[in-house]
Amino acid sequence: MLRLAAFSAALTRPLGTCMDLPNVTLVEYEDDEQRRAPASAYALDALSRLEVPTDARVVTISGPPGKFIHHMEPIRQRSPDGRLMGPKLARRLRRLHPYGLLLCLQNQVSAAISMEFGLTGPCMNLIEGTTAFADALCTLEGGKDHETTLLVMSSAADRPEQRELTKLKFPDSVLVEGAICFLFSPDGEMGLVGATASGRATSEPKKTNPKERPASLPPGWPHAPCLEGGMCVLWALASGIPSKRFWLSDGHGYQTSFDWQKL
């Protein structure tokens, strides 16, 4: 299992007693659409409170980076027939801001933290997967060449493009945006996190109700695609849970699990 050495988080809604943990803050993000997507801004905010070696191995789990469609609205407005894909499209598309594309790329969190903090180690970016947290853990445990591993989860799903669809699936949900960072190293003393004690994935898929929320988090907590594995660990830290197996669900009948053990 991986030894947790440090953590930090920047979140748009409070997560119970987790807000009493050091390095966990509430943030309000002012849209800076020409420069940086919210998911990147949250990750930079959270990571600024950790000391990370520049050769650390990095895994990012990225949810929606932020709103994107609005970049296309001015282009549609100039269409003679009111349709985006209507006449004179090639000419109208000249007005698409170059950053419009960059802001919809889903590897921008890994790129942003690499540039900001000079991280040049191996990097993997997993996207759109609440279950990815557990599926990534067993590969991280195999990273013997790199003693320090940084795991960053970041998501900006509380936007019009995403919010309503999420609510179709999870009707009672309140969404939270933000980033959660974990630094694992051989001398970490906060706790152990792993897919299982043996390093093998425990992800034996079980058919679940697609509308069923993962059962591991306290009732009433906000929902956050791609952040929930991190939220489970924050909850365990804040509550002093000695050991627990957490389950994550993708809403399509696939589940993964990981173990937490306090040190």
């Binding site: 990225s62 790329l105 997967g129």
Partner: peptide
């Protein structure tokens, strides 16, 4: 949206093991 593309490909292949989506 979300995990739907990964679920679609997994179902098409009949994959019953772990699954992730990568974007670099």
């Amino acid at each position: 949206f979300g995990e739907a593309p990964l679920a679609e490909v997994a179902e098409h292949l009949g994959v019953d093991g772990p699954r992730v989506r990568v974007d670099t």
